[in-house]
Design a protein around this nucleic acid. Sequence first.
DNA 1: GGTGGTCTTGACGCGTTCCTGACGCCCGGC
DNA 2: GCCGGGCGTCAGGAACGCGTCAAGACCACC
Lengths: 224, 224
Amino acid sequence: MSRVLVVDDDVQLLRALRISLRAAGYEVVTAPDGTTALREAATAHPDLIVLDLGLPDLDGTEVLAGLRPWFTGPVLVLSARADSQDKVAALDAGADDYVTKPFDMAELLARLRAAVRRGAAEPGEAVITTDHFTVDLAAKQVTVDGVAVRLTPTEWALLSELVRSPGRLVGQKQLLQSVWGPAYERETNYLRVYLAQLRRKLEPDPAHPRHLHTEPGMGYRFTP
Amino acid sequence: MSRVLVVDDDVQLLRALRISLRAAGYEVVTAPDGTTALREAATAHPDLIVLDLGLPDLDGTEVLAGLRPWFTGPVLVLSARADSQDKVAALDAGADDYVTKPFDMAELLARLRAAVRRGAAEPGEAVITTDHFTVDLAAKQVTVDGVAVRLTPTEWALLSELVRSPGRLVGQKQLLQSVWGPAYERETNYLRVYLAQLRRKLEPDPAHPRHLHTEPGMGYRFTP
DNA sequence: GGTGGTCTTGACGCGTTCCTGACGCCCGGC
DNA sequence: GCCGGGCGTCAGGAACGCGTCAAGACCACC
């Protein structure tokens, strides 16, 4: 199911939200302030975000501004302020919905469902391009020199995990964990086999990769 | 410029909405009741719809139910009822947002902007055409080489779910969930059976499909 | 009560994918 | 020069997923 990042500094509310969202079938990640929220949003790959505007460190709109350039999923804003000026500001800053506290949990869940449903119909413009191939994360399609290339589910899971952090080094533990599961953290040979297949399918010269680089002993890096 | 269909029986409110929306740069079409709304939605091709729930002839959720099978743009619901049960019902019936009357016009406009921004990438065309067949989502009609083809309800539900995202891969979980319900997530054999039937009815060479492709282990893809 | 159409369910063959182990290479440390 | 760790490559066998077919269950309508 979908993963949701909940950002709020109220511990009580956070607990209530976590319980309700879990019960509704979501996987829940939480953050107590704005800086953690931005970090978690980048690493945990949430599908949607519930964001409280009243945070201790950053203003809510600042968090939105930091999120929006790259985060394409829905963001639902929570706030104690019912003033319509605040609503307009948040919505124009990139929020998809605005709910005032105190709120009804059933309504919040319904609004989340609506946001996810709508987000599923949207491409998201999450296309990564290099000189030799392009990766469309939303359509799950890879094209090399314009022609579509078929990837197996495992190959796709590995590639998408890599291209989601362009230029950044992704540790082998993280790759193994997100593709095969936490029990496979040591099976680094899996990575060798599948990286080789990816390079064979995507790189112009698989022996001298230009985009899927190996960092010996650490992990792999995708460079556009 | 986007075209918006406003559905409301209150003449005063209708006039106020028309003026504000025009000023905000929208092209405005109006309907005073549910049946006109459904007809206008099909003929005027609006990009988004503002729908009052309290209509003289039809219940608001009925209008939504008539709209949603084929209308892919955002629908913003207006209502005098602030009860959260009503909100949940409308949102789950396919509404993208729910605003209670009396409302602030600036907030409404901001919510419309947010809805349009999200759906901006997809125009929401109701007729999909390929080399060999055409699918009319609004009329629920499929024609192969000009002649109409009869589809069973299940076949239709599956096909419409696929053609709604052209070029995009649709996961088997999502297909099963939206056609048969959440309890059937694992019954992948249903997909095999019905995809075969669809290919038999639509593809020129069912053994080598040109438009209804299988992505083993992941899902299916419709390519125009 | 019969009949036609639709949906479900199971079985089979086939191709593909995944896992696994073995081998050779490179490179830094001893 | 020897050694060990990490990496890339390759090939087989097991397991899985897909397409196909057919028979039974279910339902609405006549």
